[in-house]
Amino acid sequence: MSRGGWTEQPDQESNALLSALGSKYSAEILCAAGTPKSAQALSEDIEIPIATCYRRIEELVDAGLLECEGRQLSEEGRRTNIYRRTLDEIEVDFSSEEPQFSQKRRTEAKNRLQDQRTD
């Protein structure tokens, strides 16, 4: 269901979403991933251990909140995945028996505009 650019999350995905959002550092990773970044860059930006960052990234990708946007060469010459969040806003409604989620997904146009500002 959609309302004003918001889409509701199916019930089966709610638990994964709530779990991913409830993990320490997940919100910080999502905030930092407004532009494409590697796990190493995210780890450095929010000052968390790289292993923790990789675990949170995996949870966020599994929940559909973060996506791998491609690969690029690191400063050391290794290919690394680049991640970006898939949404800008999420709403949680606890008034029912199960939490209900609505999210405002990022558009490709918004991603392109954001990328132009950071170049």
Rank of each mutant, 00 (worst) to 15 (best):
T52G: 04
G70I: 10
A39M: 02
E108L: 09
L66F: 11
E69R: 09
E97R: 08
T80N: 08
A63R: 02
L17P: 01
M1S: 14
L65K: 03
T118I: 14
A20P: 03
K24A: 08
A16K: 09
D119I: 13
Q9A: 07
I48M: 09
E97W: 05
T35V: 15
Y54V: 04
R79E: 12
Q9H: 05
R55K: 13
T35Q: 04
L21H: 00
G77M: 09
E89K: 04
G5F: 11
G34H: 04
E69P: 01
R117N: 03
S74D: 14
L60I: 08
A63M: 09
A41C: 04
Q12T: 05
S23P: 01
A20L: 00
E69L: 05
T118A: 15
Q40V: 02
G34Q: 02
I82K: 02
T118C: 13
K104D: 08
M1Q: 13
T52K: 04
E75W: 05
A63I: 11
P49H: 10
E47D: 12
E44H: 15
K24E: 06
T7W: 08
G77C: 12
Y83H: 10
S26A: 15
L21Q: 01
G5R: 13
N111C: 11
S19L: 06
R3C: 12
L113C: 13
D93I: 03
L30M: 06
Q72F: 14
R56I: 13
G64I: 02
R3L: 15
L65N: 03
P49I: 02
D88E: 14
N111D: 09
G4E: 13
G70M: 08
G5P: 10
V92G: 05
I29N: 00
I48L: 10
S95L: 13
L42C: 02
E108T: 09
P99L: 14
L113N: 14
R55H: 07
L66V: 13
Q103I: 10
N111K: 07
L42R: 01
R105S: 13
S102M: 12
G70S: 12
E67V: 08
Q114F: 09
